[in-house]
C-alpha cells in the first residue's frame, strides 16, 4: 500500500438534516403508559407472544398485534455488555465510566428489552439475574422515563 502521490481538495458539507418522525400509535401509547409507570407490550393474535416495546406487527405470523397489555416491571437479565465508550455522531468517545447495558426479559414477555443496568458488577452479571425497572422521579412520557434496571 504505497502512499498516494496527490492530495485532493476536501470540501466539508456542514448541512444538518432535521427529520420529523411520526412514532405511530403503538410507541405513542407505550410512552403514554410511562406517565403512569406502566410498561406496555403488544400481544400477537397468532402465536400469542407478547413483545416490548409495543409495536404493530408480528413478523413471523405476519399479523397485526391489536391488543396492548401491561407487562411486569420485573424480569431476568439475559444478556449484557459493559460500555467503555459512547458513540456520538458516529465518533467513538470515551465514556465517563464503564456502564452496563442489558437485554432484559420482562416476566410474561417473549422479547428482550434493551436498557441500562445499575448496581451489578461484571463478576455478578449472569444470565437469569433478577432485575426490576427503576423510573425517573419526574415522568414526562418520554423515552428516558424508564431510567434503568437494578437487581431485585
Amino acid at each position: 500500500m504505497e502512499a498516494p502521490a496527490e492530495n485532493f481538495f476536501t470540501p466539508v458539507v456542514p448541512l444538518d438534516f432535521v427529520y420529523n418522525y411520526r412514532v405511530g400509535p403503538y410507541i405513542e401509547r407505550y410512552l403514554r403508559g410511562f406517565k403512569d409507570k406502566k410498561i406496555l407490550g403488544s400481544k400477537c393474535p397468532g402465536c400469542g407472544k407478547v413483545v416490548v416495546p409495543a409495536r404493530m406487527y408480528c413478523g413471523p405470523c405476519n399479523r397485526r398485534m391489536e391488543e396492548l397489555v401491561e407487562v411486569s416491571q420485573e424480569g431476568s437479565l439475559e444478556n449484557y455488555t459493559i460500555g467503555h465508550v459512547i458513540l456520538e455522531k458516529g465518533a467513538i468517545k470515551p465514556a465517563k465510566g464503564p456502564y452496563m447495558l442489558g437485554l432484559i426479559n420482562l416476566d410474561g414477555t417473549d422479547s428482550l428489552l434493551l436498557g441500562r443496568v445499575e448496581g451489578v458488577s461484571v463478576a455478578a452479571a449472569k444470565p437469569g439475574l433478577r432485575v426490576k425497572a427503576v423510573w425517573k422521579e419526574e415522568l414526562d412520557g418520554d423515552f428516558k422515563d424508564l431510567d434503568h434496571f437494578e437487581p431485585v
Binding site: Y19, Y21, V23, N79, T81
Partner: peptide, 18 residues
C-alpha cells in the same frame, strides 16, 4: 428512528458487544 435512535443505547458496537 421511532425508538432505538431516540433511546440512544443501541448502536453497531453495543449490539456487537451483546
Amino acid at each position: 428512528p421511532t425508538y432505538d435512535r431516540q433511546l440512544g443505547l443501541l448502536n453497531e458496537l453495543s449490539a456487537a458487544g451483546l
